[in-house]
Design a protein around this nucleic acid. Structure first.
Lengths: 132, 132
DNA sequence: TATCTGTTATATTGTAAGTATAACAGTTAG
DNA sequence: CTAACTGTTATACTTACAATATAACAGATA
């Protein structure tokens, strides 16, 4: 699992970390039960502060994506991922709305927008099954 | 065109303004050529500073959604909306990717995600044609 | 006993958001 | 011409967040 940060991005580092770990889970690179690096080692690896990593882990923990075992350290939640809650649906809709609105403004058809979403969905889920 | 701000939101006020104006254009409530309130009057109406409104207008102007006529003031771009540029596609994809990734993590199927997007698209475009 | 883990506390720096006040240049109505 | 409006710019201030830097604590491990 390679973490790639953009220090020039307007997105906070901890947000980029959260996104990339979630994408890692979605793509199958990170599986339930799999351990994550400690806050200190990950921070050291990518050259940032441990508190920035800790903030990302805390957010992922709050949503149920990861667990903290007093023995095993930090792991992808072995019980599986959080489901589609009411809170989550509201959050997703609030994020999708401005994106859809701008697409409509720019003359993007319903079909083309759906194609874009479908393409991204597939891009994430298409596992490079080179090692099984 | 009613502006509704959430002062408790994590989104900056000027971002909420930008989003709502774009949604207003997408829904047909704001048509090309139509004037927008002055920075001072809009700021006064919703109880914020004129610089916050000005920042929103500046961003909308940079992307070509609005124009500043030395006579008519600020108007929705009469030449029409900006198209689907390379920059825009990259921006949209970068916004959609983390949303899709989280949806996949939570077990949302491709079809259900597309349905959500389709629903939001229709929700924005369905004009309440009460006055024509 | 060391060393690692996550966690917490505190302090500091830098930047962004938002407000406040003021001024300038151009336009428009009286 | 004057007065009131427009967008625009400049400056300064407060607040909040992002990120870093140290440091310490409690629990687990070798």
């Amino acid at each position: 699992m390679i973490i790639q940060l953009d220090m020039q991005s307007e997105l906070p580092i901890y947000t980029q970390l959260v996104n990339q770990i979630i994408e890692g889970i979605a793509s199958g690179q990170l599986k339930p039960g799999e351990p994550l690096p400690s806050v200190r080692s990950l921070a050291s690896d990518i050259g940032i502060n441990l508190h920035t990593v800790n903030k990302a882990y805390t957010l992922l923990k709050q949503d149920g994506f990861i667990l903290v075992h007093r023995q095993k350290g930090v792991v992808i939640n072995p019980e599986g991922m959080p489901g589609i809650t009411e809170n989550y649906r509201n959050k997703m809709q609030g994020e999708l709305k401005p994106i859809a609105a701008e697409a409509i403004c720019r003359g993007m058809s319903r079909e083309r927008l759906l194609l874009e979403v479908e393409r991204i969905y597939q891009e994430i889920t298409q596992t490079d099954k080179e090692n099984d």
